[in-house]
Computed example of a mutant assay.
Amino acid sequence: MAIYAIWNNKGGVGKSYLTFQVACEYARQNPGKKVLVVDMCPQANSSSMLLGGMVEGETRLNAIHSQTRRVTISGYLEDRIASPYQSPGTGSTYLTQVNNYNPAVPDNLFLVVGDEQLETQASRVANATRPGPQEAWRIVHLWVADLIEDILTHWNHEDSCVFIDCNPSFSIYTELALSAAERLLIPFSADGSSKRAVKAVLSLVYGVRRLPTDPLSEFVINNNQFRMRVPEIYMYIGNRLTQMNNSSASAFKTVVDEIGDEVWGVWQTKPNVFCLHPNGAPAPTNKRTFKAMFQYEVNDANTASVVSGARGVPISVLPSGRANVAGKSIVVNQSQLDKQVPNIQRLVRNIE
């Protein structure tokens, strides 16, 4: 069993789309495992896609949010705000079996539904870290870990895999998500702001500093103080990369290489923050073997990507041909599927 956080300190890199595709494909490739998605993003985009896309999924999401008992991540956090330092053990009651809403998704995929109320809860969650018992910060930052443990206990610790979709901002609920995760997937797009965002990830979570005088984040300081686990870097993923012509391909490659160099530099000084894979693989000894282990690229499938997310149909089972999206007929070409489906399938085969 492994717990993956999917996070970059930047919006627009396709983080929720990647969560949707990877979780569905992992569940499809591993029918004997239970797969859990914990949606820690207030926009709840991965929940919307999993529940059926931008029309049906949004309708189902709104219905779940409208229930008297809010069976969402915010509902669970309300339990924890009421009992901040003693777990109520209610995590498994916030599970949603996705296939009950969206038959395109494998029946071994489960979801803790995202919720916009995370934003309004953030200050109350942060307030629970102070004042309180001496280890209040540590206890509060383990709330999502407690949620996952409740669910795994409910499943009798059957073979499983967990994916946490994180919000781009480094907010308190993002910190809780990262504190629960064992491994980190870092999606990025091929632009300069993605490069800055990857640098921010390395700084905020792992304390990588440009200069010795640069301040450490409170998250790093408190993690060191309480000897908390941080997720090990498992993979950085160029997501939905588009290469339209030779000049744009060259520009994309330059940015991807620069991001790779940034992460490679961290490997050289802090190899302990990386997760070697597959299990038992030798440590990389040069940039080429490092890239082969830790870098991955996913091609953009253009219209097929849009249709997949909008209809809540995983791209690996999305048929070519005409598709109805919000009342409009859109053509999905097989060539578009051929761009991305093998990428996603290979990516997931590399996730243990």
Rank of each mutant, 00 (worst) to 15 (best):
T269M: 09
V230P: 02
V144K: 09
S189C: 12
L178P: 04
E119R: 14
Y236W: 13
S316C: 05
Q336P: 06
K291S: 15
F252L: 00
S83Y: 03
F170R: 04
V263F: 03
V208F: 10
G91T: 06
N102R: 06
Q268T: 06
M244R: 11
Y101G: 04
A181D: 10
V348R: 02
V140R: 04
L61K: 09
R227S: 15
A104S: 12
T96R: 00
P212A: 15
G309W: 00
L318P: 03
I139A: 07
T242A: 10
V255Y: 06
A104M: 00
I81W: 02
Q336T: 08
A2G: 15
V35K: 06
K291W: 02
Y234M: 04
Q43F: 09
V71W: 01
V113F: 08
A27N: 08
N100F: 03
A82I: 03
A63F: 00
V201T: 13
H154L: 01
R349S: 11
N343K: 07
I73G: 03
R240A: 13
M54V: 15
K33Q: 15
G280S: 04
A304V: 12
E116R: 10
V208Q: 14
A310V: 11
A104I: 09
A197V: 04
L61S: 05
S74Y: 06
S217H: 14
V313Q: 03
L185R: 04
G321S: 03
G280K: 01
I330C: 07
N30V: 09
F170K: 06
N343Q: 01
R138H: 10
R183D: 10
E352A: 04
R210T: 14
W7R: 11
Q268W: 00
M228I: 04
P278K: 11
G11M: 13
K199D: 12
Y101R: 05
A310P: 03
Q340H: 08
S83C: 09
T174F: 06
V230W: 07
L202E: 05
K339L: 14
S169A: 13
A181R: 01
L347Q: 00
A283F: 11
I237M: 07
A281P: 01
V298W: 03
T19K: 04
A145I: 05
C24N: 12
N223H: 15
C275L: 07
A301N: 08
A145P: 02
T68W: 05
P84F: 08
N245Q: 01
N246V: 07
Y234R: 10
T72R: 01
Q67H: 12
P231V: 11
R229L: 13
T96H: 03
V38G: 09
C166W: 07
A326W: 08
S171L: 04
V273G: 07
V332E: 11
R210V: 13
K253F: 06
V255I: 14
V71I: 15
R80H: 02
A2L: 11
N100W: 03
K339Y: 03
C24V: 02
S329G: 03
G14V: 07
I330F: 03
E232A: 15
Y94E: 06
L185N: 07
D107V: 07
L51A: 09
L50H: 09
P187C: 14
T285E: 14
S217F: 10
V113P: 08
G114Y: 02
A304H: 05
N223D: 13
